[in-house]
Design a protein around this nucleic acid. Structure first.
Lengths: 338, 338
DNA sequence: CTGTTAGCGCGTTCAC
DNA sequence: GTGAACGCGCTAACAG
């Protein structure tokens, strides 16, 4: 099974140009004779032809490829976003290359450098660090770069994020309505992240609206976003109150899991009347008997905004539209159980 | 920030060969003068150097890249497997390029063709079809190819799968022990897949051991693996028995979700004493109050076996070791609740 | 309508 | 110690 155009040209006796024109479907345009075309098409149908993208990239300085660097694909949000991005890329004949950074800045930088030197036409980064590859990318204008999910480095690159403030506000409002304005805690992992900060601001704003003082005291913070962090925060909550909370809110599914595990192990069981709020929706929340509020990010719109910025960036240097904030949706489960 | 060796050579005044020798650490070997080396090294340290992988690939016919084609990254198992694979690839200085096929054979073939023509050094495929790219890959021995998860096309390529028969057997045995040998149904999505067939055989074997006849009648089948399929199967189960089952087993998390949703909507609520068995473990199963058995696949070992086959395949044509079956683990939750 | 040719940037071999 | 030259497979401009 031959691959190169040159091989096909040798075997069929035509020049590489002729072969190439036929393969690229430009035989009409250049009025290649039907006979010639048939010979070449038959040959290709029989033996196949596989373009060498490395050579093509080298020549065209373009790879028809988009790099996607993401902290963690086992985070369902990123997995869904990847799926949405891929659909849009495919429409534009781009291959989406996804690489995980495992929340490690070193790996993240290596992945970015790697993808860039492989000539990706664009780069989508969900950074796991504030100091993102500053010198790495400088001048690398050949590729358009879009930052997502966490709005570090504002100003350097176009950014696409969900409206975390509004999400925190909406969910907190609804929680307060359900609890009849009884205050509840907000358990936050990865607290220094700008997205989390925005969620906390939304939380505080809802408290302000309701005329409840001391929202700050109801926010628990942990540096990492993990099950263990969730456990620790719930533990201190239970120890302070001497019983499991009647309602609480979490910054992520991981924190929620830790919190629930902690209740189970410290109190014995999870009262199904506890009101739960959490960021990031997941179908498995269906499994819980409790009333659950969650904030779902809109991956489709996010992907759309990202791709817009990926392709429009070289053309429109319009900084006004360079960053996007996408609305989220409040999802309610089992609220009638209350 | 310059990129090409040629630029550095121009700026420093040395020839491209000299620059390249220094950059590639061969200055000792070719006895480049220390002064020359220092100049070049300092220049690179200051301005950086980004190799052009396209040109390198073209020349070396090698890309230091492994392609990974996977049906669906929002399936947590694949996400974890990807993470495990990436760790091993990184150790060997390989970049793992992950592409999703969305369970679509056409997209799968396109992804494979794409990755191959981009010169990946290896290809890991979790096929979503039996007729995998037969002619596409033929003769494409430049890349080693490993099939995983579903053992179609046995014999053509090395295969790495979990021991689904043993998994089905182990879980079914334990289920029967918990139910005191009272039969329970097995709800299967994507039933024609070899992995599912193996799980069903394990289920039947457990029934055989226990001397229970009619295991076949307890197996429900659906073509697709989805929440809806799960709902349909649970619906027919409930309609036949006139009540929700006291125990049941599912072939995947999606089917489980559908089944539970159906119980909730048809019966009103989910009795927390229902014994649940499911394939594929997920931390969110912690959220369920019910007793839950699940089968966890060992992604670390799977990844290890895959990489072994990826790199050893060219060397050892040893067909005996070319396919691997990896043990699974039974995970128990809340069994004391019974 | 078809053929020839000049690089893209890299690694290698061979001259000086 | 250093430099020059070739070719990987492809595209595009130009020559018939």
């Amino acid at each position: 099974m031959p691959k190169t155009v040159e091989e096909i040209s040798r075997e069929t006796g035509f020049s590489v140009t002729t072969v190439r024109l036929v393969i690229n479907g430009q035989s009409e345009k250049y009025r290649i004779s039907a006979a010639t075309r048939k010979v070449i098409e038959d040959y290709v149908a029989l033996h196949g032809y596989s373009i060498n993208h490395a050579a093509r990239s080298l020549k065209l300085n373009r790879s028809d490829t988009i790099g996607f660097v993401v902290p963690d694909l086992s985070n369902a949000f990123f997995a869904r976003l990847m799926a949405a991005l891929e659909v849009l890329c495919r429409k534009r004949n781009l291959l989406l290359l996804t690489v995980a950074s495992h929340e490690d800045p070193v790996l993240e930088n290596r992945a970015v450098a790697n993808l860039l030197s492989r000539g990706v036409d664009g780069l989508v980064i969900a950074p796991c660090q504030a100091t993102v590859l500053p010198q790495l990318i400088k001048g690398r204008s050949r590729s358009s770069i879009v930052m997502i999910d966490r709005d570090y480095n504002s100003g350097l690159f176009p950014t696409v994020v969900s409206d975390n403030f509004q999400g925190g506000l909406t969910m907190s409002r609804r929680m307060l309505r359900q609890t009849a304005s009884e205050p509840f805690a907000f358990l936050c992992g990865h607290a220094e992240s700008p997205s989390i900060q925005d969620r906390i601001r939304g939380f505080a704003a809802a408290y302000g609206e309701a005329g409840i003082a001391g929202a700050e005291a109801m926010v628990l913070l942990e540096a990492e976003d993990s099950i263990d962090a969730g456990r620790r925060m719930m533990q201190s909550l239970i120890e302070n109150a001497r019983h499991a909370p009647r309602a609480f809110m979490c910054s992520s599914l991981l924190v929620l899991e830790g919190a629930l595990q902690q209740i189970k192990s410290q109190v014995g069981s999870i009262d199904s009347r506890i009101l739960i709020g959490t960021f990031d929706d997941h179908t498995m929340l269906d499994l819980l008997p409790n009333p659950v509020l969650s904030i779902r990010q809109n991956e489709k719109i996010l992907a759309q905004k990202i791709v817009e910025r990926l392709v429009e960036q070289p053309a429109a240097k319009n900084l006004d539209i360079s960053s996007a904030v996408v609305a989220t949706e409040l999802v309610c489960r089992n609220l009638d159980a209350l």
